[in-house]
């Protein structure tokens, strides 16, 4: 009885591990699809038009890298926003 229980328990454990691996695999495939189609296509089009999403370049010509931020007190409603 105990041996049977132990056997069933280990089978259950194995199934759970297998299920988790399948889920991880499916998730990765879905994310790969999103990455290739969503990110990849947008990135490809952006590159054609010379659009950059990060300012990576340094320049000897400019005197300063400070850019305007200008965060100061706003109307209360603005603080409800997450962006």
């Amino acid at each position: 009885m105990t041996a049977a229980k132990l056997f069933l328990k280990s089978v259950g454990k194995g199934m759970k591990g297998f299920g988790e691996k399948i889920t991880a695999f499916v998730n990765t495939m879905l994310l790969l699809l999103v990455y290739l189609v969503g990110v990849g296509l947008t990135s490809f089009v952006a590159r054609i038009f010379g659009k950059h999403f990060l300012e990576r370049k340094t320049s000897k010509k400019v005197n300063s890298y400070w850019s305007d931020l200008n965060i100061k007190k706003q109307e209360r409603e603005k603080y409800y926003k997450q962006f």
């Binding site: 990455y35 990849g40 999403f53």
Partner: peptide, 17 residues
């Protein structure tokens, strides 16, 4: 975060996942 992925495609795949 999205901008990083868009800029660095396809090198950012691992961190994207």
């Amino acid at each position: 975060i999205l901008s990083q992925h868009l800029e660095m495609f396809p090198f950012s795949f691992k961190t994207f996942v």
